[in-house]
């Protein structure tokens, strides 16, 4: 995968062959999901129809369904505070959902920061910007450990001092984004970081929320599979659009190593963009129980082939 060959308009072949909708289906559905997650919070303040109150940190839907950010509950626990029952129940529900759906589905389908970092990545691709300061993708695990240690050491939920995810969501839900507060600053900081410092820098390398959800959903059921990998013509479109490109290689090119076509890395955010852009129909959504043709009975030979190569 030589960077010089990377296409600036991934998905062009697919669009020419199958039309715009086919080349953008999962992208549009994902944007609708993200808009929907915002909408349920916004109908109340805008029109008085209360569906969900609160923010991504903790919310109450229709007065019966509590949802809590499990990383927040964990930080509170380490800081020496046990939440109320509804908060704990909410955290368990969210944990269970993402354990099944694949943890980083949160990043691809619910998190509002994804819109910002996807935009930055789109700009980088379109203008062919090279990655100036490559970072190790394991950095986010360090940040996660730092957050947990920091919570225990200071007795506070430390990540909330800077968390772009909840800050942006809170600002969108309360309508204070453009009031010049901290949320706008931190969102611009993330955008500039992804644009100018590191490609997919925030979500792909640093965000401890994503790292936490990745660990939660490491054995998630919903998976992308490179079922038709034999048809791959190495056009690089999928690698170009993928926010976690290291997860594709083992599945797409694992046939010779006896590795199945399922993308099993915990870092995959199930965004489905690879399915959209592939003109050879290589990828599809499936579950981890459908490790189709080419699967190896004894499993992967080396862990390195399961998306653990980090850059």
């Amino acid at each position: 995968m030589s960077p010089s060959r990377e296409p600036r308009r991934p998905g062009l072949d697919r669009k020419r062959r199958d039309g715009w909708w086919a080349a953008h289906k999962w992208l549009v559905l994902r944007r609708l999901a993200q808009a929907g997650f915002l909408a349920v919070f916004l109908t109340g303040p805008l029109w008085g129809w209360w569906i969900t109150k609160g923010t991504l940190a903790a919310s109450m839907t229709l007065g019966v369904l509590p949802l809590t950010d499990p990383l927040m509950a964990l930080q509170a626990l380490l800081a020496g505070h046990v939440m109320e029952t509804s908060g704990l129940v909410g955290a368990v529900i969210v944990l269970a959902a993402y354990a099944v759906l694949g943890g980083r589905s949160f990043c691809g389908w619910a998190c509002p920061v994804n819109l910002v970092t996807d935009f930055a990545a789109w700009v980088r691709t379109r203008f062919g910007l090279k990655d100036a300061y490559p970072m190790d993708r394991r950095l986010r695990l360090l940040v996660l450990v730092g957050v947990l240690v920091g919570s225990a050491a200071t007795g506070t939920i430390v990540w909330e001092a800077v968390n772009p995810v909840t800050m942006l969501h809170r600002a969108l839900v309360t309508g204070s984004l453009f009031a010049g507060g901290a949320a706008l600053s931190i969102t611009i900081a993330v955008l500039l970081f992804d644009l100018g410092v590191a490609s997919r820098g925030w979500c792909g390398h640093l965000c401890p929320v994503g790292a936490f959800y990745a660990l939660v959903g490491a054995k998630g059921l919903v998976r992308v599979s490179a079922v038709n990998r034999d048809a791959c013509d190495n056009c690089m479109d999928c690698f170009t659009v993928c926010p976690e490109r290291q997860v594709i290689t083992p599945a797409l090119r694992g046939a010779k190593n006896g590795v199945g076509p399922l993308i099993l890395s915990r870092d995959c955010s199930n965004c489905g963009r690879c399915i959209d852009v592939c003109a050879k129909d290589v990828f599809t959504f499936t579950t981890r129980f459908h490790d189709g043709p080419g699967a190896c009975a004894q499993g992967p030979a080396k862990k390195a082939l399961q998306g653990e190569k980090m850059l």
């Binding site: 109150k53 909330e160 809170r170």
Partner: peptide, 9 residues
């Protein structure tokens, strides 16, 4: 700050 998740409920 060990308890409040700043959810705004």
């Amino acid at each position: 700050l060990s308890a409040c998740v700043r959810c705004g409920l």
